Amino acid sequence: MRPDTPVQWHASIDSTNEEARRLAQAGHYGPIWIAAREQTAGRGRLGRQWSSPTGNLYCTALFLEPGGIQVATRFPFAAGLAIADICAQIAPDAPVKLKWPNDVRVDGAKLCGILVEAGAGPGGASWVAAGMGTNVQSAPEAVGQSATCLKDMVPGAPLDADLVMEAIRPAFAKRIAQARDDFPGLLNDWLTFAEGLGETVRIGKDVSAKVGRFVGLESDGGLRLELPNGAVEIIRAGDVELVREVG
């Protein structure tokens, strides 16, 4: 991705990630940004619905990754850092945190959700659809958690989806390049924003939930969970949620 990768805007669309998937399956791999002012069938991880009212930004970067799926798995970290980077520009005093594996939060409230999908491309490459739903002007309640928006973080600032889209393009290009060339450095940067690092956390929400201390990341981005018996378990499953232990 380049900082000047073109943007294909839609007034309304079912889902920017779905549009990226349609393009890729038709043999069109970009690079291109697909952006929308409204989604009628937005979705997040695990098929959850993503509330997508007008005024917020829904965008997906579609591009080919020559390194295949192994490299594409790094991109949720790159996307989260890109959003953190633009928050540092727009709202430098906001306590932005990255919740493993792919949420951007402020004071425990969700600001941005990230959904990175990939599939087989030509010549051993993978197509990647890196979707980001960022609350710009309103904060719709996310599933099971509170939400915030950029407008609330910087009251009175002239923020809209177009301005945020222009900020995301160079920030994402920079972090994607870092993910490819210096993934250890990217993970170190990510850890500076990590929510719950060094604290007791719960992984999962049902009877199989695991409780321990979030002590860092593996070289591939897996979460290192120190269990009460001192053993360290690596969490990599796609359906893992990170929830702070109360009390």
Rank of each mutant, 00 (worst) to 15 (best):
P3N: 11
P3V: 08
D4G: 08
T5L: 07
H10T: 03
S15H: 05
N17A: 01
E19L: 02
Q25V: 10
G27H: 00
P31E: 04
A41T: 14
R43Y: 06
R45T: 03
G47H: 11
S51G: 04
S52Y: 01
T60C: 05
E65G: 03
V71Y: 08
V71E: 13
F75E: 06
P76Q: 03
F77K: 04
G80L: 05
I90A: 01
I90W: 01
A91E: 00
D93A: 14
G108W: 06
K110P: 09
I114M: 01
E117M: 00
A118P: 03
G121Y: 02
G121S: 07
G123R: 04
G123Q: 06
G123L: 01
A125W: 02
S126W: 08
A129M: 05
A129Q: 02
M132T: 02
Q137G: 13
Q137S: 15
Q137I: 03
S138A: 08
E141T: 13
V143G: 09
Q145D: 08
S146V: 15
S146A: 14
T148I: 15
P158W: 00
P158D: 00
V164A: 04
E166N: 10
E166Q: 15
E166W: 03
R169L: 07
A171P: 10
R175M: 13
R180G: 06
D182H: 05
G185F: 03
G196W: 04
G198F: 08
G198K: 04
V201Y: 13
V201A: 06
I203Q: 09
G212N: 05
G212R: 06
V215W: 10
L217Y: 13
D220L: 12
D220Y: 07
D220P: 15
G221Y: 07
L223E: 10
E226W: 11
P228Q: 11
A231E: 15
A231N: 14
E233G: 03
I234M: 11
I235T: 03
R236D: 15
G238L: 08
G238P: 04
L242V: 15
V243P: 05
E245A: 14
V246F: 12
